[in-house]
Amino acid sequence: MAKRIDVKDLNLFYGKFHAVQQVSLSVPPRNVTAFIGPSGCGKSTVLRSLNRMHEVAPGARVEGTVQLDGEDIYASTVDPVQVRRTIGMVFQRPNPFPTMSIRDNVVAGLKLAGVKNKKQLDEVAERSLRGANLWNEVKDRMDRPGGGLSGGQQQRLCIARAIAVQPDVLLMDEPCSALDPISTLAIEDLITELKKDYTIVIVTHNMQQAARVSDQTAFFNLLGVGQPGQLIEVDDTEKIFSNPTQKATEDYISGRFG
């Protein structure tokens, strides 16, 4: 279950473009870490490197190490597909598989892993949907397409899908940016609950959200256009928002730029 992440000297590239430079940080287990920073500073890129999604883009390249409980996920012996099966990811836009029913969406990951037992799949579907606070809303229409739900429900469906495989880590890339305030609140409550079982890393543009849900906050910035993004500082959320070490952080969270 929940594992710690250690990132060391991480450099990320898209072809010749150096997107992120020298990031080192640690995420303790059962903890929510928020990545904040202006657009284009590389926070999503760093997030995507944590489950080896970064390299899916053509020409993308990774240097440095990312360790999951001490094991380098970029070691040459590691299969990226296996990494992604143990690290769940939720995207900016809810992306349930439109051709699948609600139930099949939730158990899609398990089916990929080869689980065929119908009873087991049904149990996991219910448990995951309960975990995502969606069960009561969809239990009577499990065979309906996932695309028929509202945006907020779809996003919770995607969270259910991600936690159905009981991942070690849950990555969330601006999970609320496409949602209305009520759905956002539902997701934030859910994050607080999920924290008991999972290590969570969340990218957000919403600083109040970072302050509300996270234990630790990492501030990313870029020095100029075309320059690589950098990790400016990472600390307890309380400290970042009340008494940051770096001036850039203070300027950003106080709304002086970005």
Partner: peptide, 29 residues
């Protein structure tokens, strides 16, 4: 095939063929 669906499948740990099977084929059928 919508990029988000493909990414969703990849993030679930789908291999190339499984991505095709879960997103490209149903979408394009």
């Amino acid at each position: 095939t919508p990029g988000p669906h493909v990414e969703g499948a990849i993030a679930l740990g789908a291999t190339k063929w499984e991505v095709v099977r879960t997103t490209v084929l149903p979408f394009g059928k």
